[in-house]
Amino acid sequence: MTEPPARAGTDVVVELRGIKKSFGATEVLHGVDLTIHTGEHVVVFGPSGSGKSTLLRTINLLEEPSEGSVRLLGVEYGPGLPGERGRRGGPLQLRRHVGMVFQQFNLFPHLTALHNISLALRSVKGLGRREAEARAAVALRQVGLVRWAGHFPAELSGGQQQRVAIARALSLDPKVMLFDEPTSALDPELVGEVLAVMRELAESGMTMVVVTHELNFAREIGDFNVFMDQGSIVECGGAGFFDTCTNPRTRQFMEAVL
């Protein structure tokens, strides 16, 4: 792995150290280090099975690492490195600061768009019904869907559902947003509206980690780009990465995709 370029001047939000993950006897992450700074847009890409989604899911401990540490706001989470001791935070505490958007949206189908968001606000922030609903409406307005507040997920298009999912995650004021291939399950003509919301979010200064196959979008917003293959980071770099990357495996992948 090449040395990550120095990104001075900003605070670290999330720091992954030595993340390993095994499913049974197969190790799918071989000790990954990654630092994410405030306001940074980190793009993770690579072939299927490279471990990029698994890596993303270890950031909020949806996937508990077999080894390694996740550090957020000065607190260590996860099992830690071998021999590492000290107090570690629980997953519930960590997840309250990390928002996540899934490939399959994962909206709650039995609740309206508004109540998908207000349920999260009520149970995580402990808000009363009125306040939760009012804030949920604000979150829906942010993604341009306030008129659809009373609709159920089944009555919305895929793009609208994903925008509601983004609003739901944002409503909890996360310190960092994770996107796990957010446009992969969408009809091509609906990809644009979701990317537009993400672009707006990026411009507003939100810290984002995006796993995506949309390399044109990645090139546009990626402040820090990470290419993964076979459970390791092969190469990473700053804004010009897509034109300046040197590793033959990275180049091969880019030529195949772009």
Binding site: L62, F102, Q104, N106, S123
Partner: peptide, 12 residues
């Protein structure tokens, strides 16, 4: 994914 979405939101 339903359970995962809840977990990711920080729900108990």
């Amino acid at each position: 994914g339903q359970r995962e979405a809840g977990l990711a939101l920080g729900m108990h």
